[in-house]
Every structure is written in structure tokens, then in C-alpha cells.
Design a protein around this nucleic acid. Structure first.
Lengths: 255, 255
DNA sequence: CGAATCGTTGACGTCCGTCAAACTACGTGG
DNA sequence: CCACGTAGTTTGACGGACGTCAACGATTCG
């Protein structure tokens, strides 16, 4: 709204900058003891300004900083292999952006300004300096776990929002299969511990649909299922099912 | 699978316990320096065992500990005002459970064992003792922010999985309205910064449906909308729309 | 003034949710 | 061991919510 030139003139120190900030009372920075963070205020001196359509970071970007929304609005979204997008949230003043990168060191989603907006840039390494040496790795791990959970949910959102029932179930089976493999079991044959009803609820469909799809997959020779015992016969076939046309196929915003 | 009696006999100290644990190589505990945490190993000596259907914690429970899955499987879910449930995830060995409680101090979701399962109990206060005094509040805040994001996503899952298009849009509008209010704007009249296409994508429906619903809400005198300018006329009416019958109305598992 | 982006409106078809009923597996008590 | 109840799963018939397609306004911008 106001020009960048004006903003810069107002800011002589980060403290000054914060004093003028309308999100002051909710802000993360107010929780940081200024004495402990000599480098931080300097790093935060210049807010970053984004025009409409500009992206704060994109999927795969290396993770350096977290961001505090000063003004404007943002959308975050994930992009799947086929280029389709699922918006996972809208963000307003005082929201924290970028924590999704803590776990892997790379951003798992993408954030774009919906109008001219500004953020404070908080370098994560500066934050970590103040945590003291002991156990800071642990803390980072916990943040990663929490934001990893958020990412996992975003992914599920993508399933529910964009895929047909058959694709959702295929994705679910492949997901379980992978997890069983990671934990030392067989990837192709395992026991489903949850009832059909839970699967249906999780995937946002009716129990009857789950039942019918299991049968259909069996007829297509993709799986063999008896009660809760499941055997994956044709993994590639399931992948094909997953990647077949999905809902809202219209592409857009392919900037 | 093996009896509780056997497990207990094997455990003489937490270290012994961990040595026997098949999730050892992925586990959070391996990241904790034993010298720094005299109380922790003692606290973790006895894993907690849950029978099928038993719950680790329920929505609203006070947050004390996080949990590491040793064996078995769990489901997590949230419950809305009407008692309906949305499953938000299935959890296997080595998963971390309970971080959803860090932010508010209470658990926002509920976790139930799908079969006989066991978890290690890690009291969060013991962890925090080791973080040192400086800035541990900040770290906690960041974990809270990350897990808050996960919870937010779970909530959206509930929308996509269980509600009709009209209810999703009503919920979206009320949500935006609240956020605008929290940030000092008007709750009843504001500017939508995102295009219809983004709203549709976010809520998992077609653009045309969004458009038609806006019109319908207008005819019902719930809102007044012109392009991106929105005015909420009848908040209670929107709430009624939201709470009207939704999909998968069949209740279950009302233990 | 075109071109592009965004939003609206109508007609049509289908995926999948709803309802109803039968079948199974499993546990419990007589 | 069998009768019985319950919870879980399957199957079929039916219909409505909503996605798809197509075309037309409205707005912005170079």
C-alpha cells in the first residue's frame, strides 16, 4: 500500500521498525530477549516486500529463514508430480511462515502473495545461536516433527480435495505399504489393523464405496484382499490408477 | 502380541528397555544426551500398554507428555461440536504422538489404539529442563506454531471430508471473518484478496460451485457480495447452514 | 481498443452417498 | 457345542449433489 521508499525511511533500527509494526502485540519477536540476539535485530532491519503474485519461496528451496507477516495476505500450496496445486492455507498479518522447512532443510510448500505484502525475515540460524548448545538439535527435531505432521496433513488435503475415490484409496494403500516397508515389514503383504469404517472416514467417503473399490481393485488384479489381510499384486497398476485423470483437471496459474 | 508380563520382565532400566526396542534407530530418545537428563530415563522406565479401543488421551486432556510408539498402531481424530469424528492420521512404530498439545497446553485431538500397542511416555517438562533457561519459551512457541499449523490442517480435513459444499463455504467465510476481527478489522465487512479460483481449490470444489453458492447465500440474505467485497449480514444464518446435516451422518464408535 | 483474467449462468451427466438387506466372523452365555 | 447378538463387510437399487462443458459478462491493463 505505501511505497517501499517510505517504509525504508521509517526504519533506522529493528526496534524502531517493530515499534511501528501493527502486529507488534502478537509477534514472535516480542518473545526474543534483545540482549541475547545482537545479530538478529540487524538481520531484521529490512522487511521484504512482495508484489501480488510474487513468491516468498518455492517448493524445494533451501530453508534459511522463517517469516512473519507484517501486512497483506498470502496463500500456501503444494504441487504434485503432475503440476496440480492444492492450496493449504491463507495467511494474514502476524502469521508465521516457513516452518515447513525445518525438518528436511528444504521447503515442502510454496507461498505466494495475494496482494502487495510485507514480511519480516528471521534467519533461523540466528535464532538457534541463542538456544545454547545443549539439546538445540533436539528442539529442532521436535519442531521438525510438528511441522512434518502439518505437511502430512496438507498432503492428505490434496487427496481429499483433488482425487476421485479410487485414487484416494490407491494412494492410501501405497502409503501404508511404504510405511510397513520402512518399519521392516513386507511392502507387498500386510495386515490392515483398522476397520473399513475408519478407512472410509479417513479418506472422506462411505464405507460401501471402500468395499466396492476393494472389489474393483481385486477384479483388476491390482490387489488381493480378504477381510483385513491385504496383498499388493500390481504396484504399478495402483500407481497408474493414482495418476489417472483427477478432478478439477483445469490447469491454471502456471507462472 | 506378546504379553505384558513378558515385556515388564525385560525392562530393568530405560537403557535396557531401549536396547530391546525395535524402533531404536529412528527414535527421539537417541537424540537426548543421557547425562543431561537424570530424571528422564527413570520416567521412561515403564512403557504404557494399551488394549484395542483404549485411548492414549482425549480431546481437552491436559498436555503433560509426548509419546513414542513402540509397537502396534493408532488412529488420531478430532471431534466436532455435533460429536462427529474425522480421522486425521494412522500411526505406526517410531511415530511421535501428542505434540498437538504443546501450544495450548491441552490436546486438540484424540488418539486410540487399533490393536494392543505400547508407547514410551516422555514427560515434556523433563525435556524442557534440559533446554536451559534462555529462550526455551521461544522454542516452545515455535513448536506450538508448527503443531498449531498441523491442527489447522486437520480442521480443514474435517471440512473437506465431512461437509457439503455449502457448509464448507460458510465455514470458510466465518473463518476469514474471525481472522479479520482478530487483526483489528471489521468482522462483518471486508475484502477477499483471493480469486474465486483459489477459494474453490482450497475448499475442494469447482469455481462454478463457489459462484453459485455465493449467489444462493445472497438470496437467503446471509451475505452481500460484489466481486471481492463481502458483507456478512446474518452470521447466525451462516452458522445454521454450517451445522445442518452433513455427509456420513451415521454415528459410530460412541464409546 | 483488444487481450487476458476473472466471474457468472445454464444444461447435462455421473460419481458416489444413501438406504435397505443379507452375509460373515466372532464372542458370550446357556 | 449351539443359539444368539453384535460389529464388520458386502451387495444392489436409486437419486441427488456437484463437476464438466460451453458461452457469455465484467474488469483490468497494456
Amino acid at each position: 500500500m505505501h511505497s517501499r521508499r517510505n517504509s525504508v525511511e521509517h526504519i533506522s533500527t529493528a526496534r524502531r521498525s517493530c515499534d511501528n509494526c501493527c502486529t507488534r502485540k502478537y509477534c514472535l519477536v516480542s518473545r526474543i530477549d534483545e540482549r541475547l540476539t545482537p545479530g538478529l535485530s540487524k538481520a531484521m532491519r529490512h522487511p521484504r516486500i512482495l508484489a501480488r503474485g510474487e513468491r516468498l519461496f518455492i517448493q524445494g528451496d533451501k530453508f534459511y529463514s522463517i517469516y512473519l507477516v507484517r501486512s497483506g495476505t498470502f496463500k500456501s500450496y503444494i504441487i504434485d508430480d503432475t503440476g496440480d496445486r492444492q492450496i493449504t492455507g491463507f495467511h494474514f498479518a502476524a502469521d508465521i511462515l516457513g516452518l515447513d522447512g525445518v525438518q528436511s532443510g528444504r521447503h515442502g510448500l510454496e507461498i505466494e502473495a495475494l496482494e502487495t505484502s510485507s514480511v519480516c525475515v528471521v534467519p533461523f540460524c540466528k535464532l538457534e545461536q541463542d538456544f545454547g548448545q545443549n539439546q538445540s538439535g533436539l528442539y529442532r527435531y521436535l519442531i521438525g516433527a510438528a511441522s512434518g505432521a502439518a505437511y502430512q496433513q496438507s498432503y492428505l488435503l490434496m487427496l481429499l480435495g483433488r482425487l476421485h475415490a479410487a485414487q484416494r484409496l490407491a494412494s492410501f494403500l501405497l502409503d501404508i505399504s511404504r510405511k510397513m516397508g520402512e518399519r521392516g515389514g513386507s511392502e507387498s503383504e500386510f495386515h490392515l489393523t483398522m476397520p473399513r469404517y475408519d478407512i472410509a472416514n479417513y479418506l472422506g467417503m462411505a464405507v460401501e464405496t471402500v468395499s466396492r473399490l476393494f472389489k474393483r481393485f481385486e477384479k483388476q488384479n491390482l490387489i488381493k484382499v480378504e477381510r483385513r489381510h491385504l496383498k499388493i499384486i500390481d504396484r504399478d497398476g495402483l500407481l497408474d490408477t493414482l495418476s489417472s485423470d483427477h478432478r478439477f483437471s483445469a490447469l491454471r496459474n502456471t507462472a
